[in-house]
Amino acid sequence: MAFIDYYKILGVSKNASEADIKKAYRKLARKYHPDLNPNDKVAEKKFKEINEANEVLSNSENRKKYDQYGEHWQHAEEYEKAKQQRQYQKSYQGGTGGYSEEDFSDFFENMFGGRASRGGQTQVKFRGQDFNAELQLDLKDVYTTHKRTLTVNNKNIRITIPAGVENGQIIKIKGHGGKGINGGPNGDLYIQFSIVNHSKFKRDKDNLYSTIDLDLYKALLGGEILVDTFNGKVKLNIKPETQNGTQVKLKSKGFPKYKKEGQFGDLYITYQIKLPTRLSEKEKELIKELQKLR
């Protein structure tokens, strides 16, 4: 297995800061994103490499292991345990307990190179690397449960996206990460959702918030109006003498609750009273009369 230089993939030096790595990843991810490069196999491969590099270098612990063990960073703990066991065996057998460079090479060949270990022992199986990806969706896309096909590592994966997924939420797709070593299980694919809101509603978890204009006469005298919800209009009764800034709750008219079919949050509507403009002389006279009465 050839050594993968993740620093080179992101175009940063080995002493790059976390901020430098994050900035480089975002810039390259935008450039090579499949949505901007449809049917471009080269860009697709590059996008995969960029995500793999970011997964390792953006995590301080993973980065430390990678700097020490290279492409085998995920198996650092197994190596350390095996190293301690071999040192114990050498000491028990009357050896010095040391660990030579040759032993080091043999260890990696045995564990990762595909040849049988000494004495005909069975090869150790290791789980494949986990992959990370980001999926951008519009808020309306996650109002209902739907299926979507993603291309990961040159494979099409059809996934179900539950209604109510939140911005930044991560879900795991089991077995769709890197291939296992020596017959070990595949890694998993972790998808982080980036949800863009182009609606007039503000979302806070399961609840939605909206501000609507209410004319002065309706606010004073009361009446009925039609208001928008996320999936249609509803009729709303306005109480007489409604004050500016009054908030009302429409129960179960908010956003779907994640993995709770048929359950919704609430919609909160705030009234913003709109004063009339371009008053006629007659209107001004009537308002003055009203002012005298008050």
Rank of each mutant, 00 (worst) to 15 (best):
V124L: 01
G119V: 01
M111Q: 07
G94L: 06
F107W: 15
D103M: 15
Q85P: 01
Y88N: 05
Q87T: 11
T122P: 02
G120C: 04
F104S: 13
D106K: 10
R127L: 06
G128A: 04
R115E: 05
R86M: 02
Y79H: 04
G95Q: 11
T122M: 12
D103T: 15
Q93V: 06
T96G: 05
G114L: 01
G120F: 09
Q84K: 09
R115N: 15
G95A: 11
F112N: 01
D103G: 14
S91W: 05
G114Y: 00
A116E: 08
Q84S: 07
Y79R: 01
E101R: 10
Y79K: 07
F126D: 00
G94Q: 09
A116G: 09
G114M: 02
T96F: 13
G98I: 12
G94F: 06
G128L: 09
Y99H: 13
D103F: 13
G128F: 00
K125C: 14
K83C: 02
F126K: 03
R127I: 09
Q129D: 04
V124P: 00
R127T: 09
D130M: 02
S100R: 12
G128V: 00
Q121V: 13
Q123T: 03
A82W: 07
D130P: 00
Q121I: 11
A116S: 05
Q123R: 10
S100M: 07
Q89L: 10
S100T: 14
Y88D: 08
F107Y: 07
G98A: 14
D130N: 15
F107S: 08
F112K: 00
S100F: 02
Y99W: 13
E102H: 15
F104P: 00
F104D: 15
Q123K: 09
F107T: 11
S91C: 04
R127C: 06
F112Y: 11
E80I: 09
F126C: 00
F108L: 15
S105A: 14
K90R: 15
G120I: 03
